[in-house]
């Protein structure tokens, strides 16, 4: 029972960050139809930026996280403007190839700038863990959990309660009609990519200090984000949130009670199963992907 409770706590923390990663990707994937292979690189960009701001520039830890999120947002807007805008209307594999190219350039650029040796960021949190009964968790993880939930809630409000969010939803449902109704599609695409990138950078900024920061950290993040998006369905924030927690649950329980060697297979097995029985993801609105 002790072990089970500990697994549940681990799952909640892991799941909240998975959700954050997934939401960014699902927005880009759903609204722009771009398979964003650079998502993991924006994640590691966020992590490196926290290192840069907190360790090298000496900013406060929390301020550094905010700076990293803003930087991720700007970088996303730049990528959209330079790489994606000229290719508007190209098919899905063409833009995907561009994003793979961007991924290769960014990952090796990171290694060129920072070197291959992993970096770590010290945090103002106490090292001694928070212990409740038999369950133990670090204070940093508690902070990451709360910050992730706050960001998830903020993006939910942004999409559902603001004018920009309304325009994004309209574009998601029918781009041409939205355009006719006076929605500035170019602006929506840029906002979407910037928002998605900011969320990825936020995930990296929060998790970088928890783990270590290395140029390859984005690879696994990208794969997991894809898994989450498929579980939740394209373009659904609620879906991505639940998908993130589900993936974390499967991994945690898989490693704890089945086999740690297959831990990372759990997510993919779920994906295959979901797609076979409910091809549009668990929570997607009815739609057809062409």
């Amino acid at each position: 029972m002790t072990e089970f409770l500990q697994h549940i706590v681990n799952m909640l923390i892991l799941g909240s960050t998975y959700a954050l990663l997934g939401i960014g990707l699902t927005l880009i994937f759903g609204i722009m139809r771009v398979v964003n292979f650079a998502h993991g690189e924006l994640y590691s960009f966020g992590a490196y930026f926290v290192y840069f701001a907190a360790i090298l520039l000496g900013f406060n830890f929390f301020v550094s996280i905010l700076i990293a999120i803003v930087a991720g947002c700007l970088l996303g807007a730049l990528i959209e403007f330079v790489l994606l805008r000229p290719m508007r209307g190209a098919d899905i594999d063409t833009t995907m190839l561009i994003m793979i190219g961007a991924m290769i350039v960014m990952q090796n650029g990171e290694q060129y700038i920072w070197g291959g040796v992993a970096k770590s960021v010290n945090t103002p949190f106490p090292q001694a863990p928070l212990v409740i009964g038999s369950v133990s968790v670090s204070w940093l993880s508690v902070f990451v959990f709360c910050a992730s939930l706050a960001l998830i809630a903020a993006s939910y409000l942004l999409i559902n309660k603001t004018k920009l969010g309304k325009a994004m939803r309209a574009t998601f449902q029918d781009r041409d009609t939205a355009s006719l109704m006076g929605v500035n599609i170019q602006m929506i695409y840029m906002a979407t990519f910037a928002l998605g990138s900011a969320l990825a950078a936020a995930a990296g900024a929060l998790l970088g200090p928890v783990y270590v920061i290395s140029p390859q950290m984005g690879n696994l993040a990208s794969l997991k984000a894809f898994a989450i998006v498929i579980l939740g369905g394209l373009g659904s924030i609620g879906g991505a949130t639940i998908g993130g927690f589900m993936l974390a649950f499967a991994e945690e329980m898989g490693a704890g009670y089945i086999s740690s060697g297959y831990r990372d297979a759990m997510g993919f097995l779920i994906i295959i199963a979901v797609l076979l029985f409910k091809p549009t993801g668990l929570f997607a609105r009815a739609e057809r992907i062409g």
Partner: peptide, 20 residues
């Protein structure tokens, strides 16, 4: 005897098992 993937960053599941 637990394993962790080369790229894995979160080992809490394996460690929780060992804790108990």
């Amino acid at each position: 005897v637990e394993t962790m993937d080369q790229a894995a960053q979160d080992m809490s599941a394996q460690l929780s098992k060992m804790k108990s």
